Simulated scan of single mutants.
Amino acid sequence: MSSAESDDTDPTKAEIACFEVGIKFGSLYHQFAGTPVSSESADSLARAMEEAIENQPHCESVTIEIDEEALAAAADGAYTELTGRFMTVEIVVAREGRSVTARMAMDDGYPLMEIVSVADDN
């Protein structure tokens, strides 16, 4: 195989960084989905989630907002289970000289995770 052929299949530095942010979102969503939450515990849960994900390699920052009004409406005075419909999340990862910012927010009833920006750290 020539070097030109291998260059076409090697991931770019931006792709490596984007993959890394995807790992963070997968971990965040699947680790915490189903956690019992109320409007009273939402803030402390959000901070704990941020700190847990920020422990992972290459993670620069995590910001989680839990919609306490929507929780209260869904829980009808008690608690409910955490799902993507209650969260807005932003994660920043720095890897291979690139910074990737990704976001999760509701889009047509679905918690859509998407890349917002990819920047060169140099």
Rank of each mutant, 00 (worst) to 15 (best):
Y110E: 15
S44I: 15
S27V: 02
S3N: 12
I53M: 05
E60G: 13
P111Q: 09
E90S: 15
P11L: 11
F32G: 02
T35R: 05
Y79V: 15
N55W: 05
Q31H: 09
L82A: 07
A74S: 14
E68S: 11
K24N: 12
S2F: 00
A102Q: 02
E90R: 14
A17M: 04
E96D: 15
S6M: 09
S3Y: 06
I115M: 05
E54H: 05
D43I: 10
D120V: 15
T35G: 12
S39G: 15
F25R: 05
G34S: 06
L45K: 03
E50Y: 05
S39H: 10
R95G: 07
A102H: 02
I23Y: 03
G84S: 04
E65G: 13
R85V: 12
V118C: 11
F86K: 02
A75H: 06
E96G: 14
Y29C: 03
T101C: 11
V37D: 02
S99P: 06
P11F: 07
D108I: 06
A33P: 03
D121R: 07
D10Y: 03
G26C: 03
Q31S: 10
G34L: 00
L82S: 02
Y79W: 09
D108G: 14
D108W: 00
N122H: 11
A52G: 09
K13N: 14
A72E: 09
E60P: 05
L71W: 00
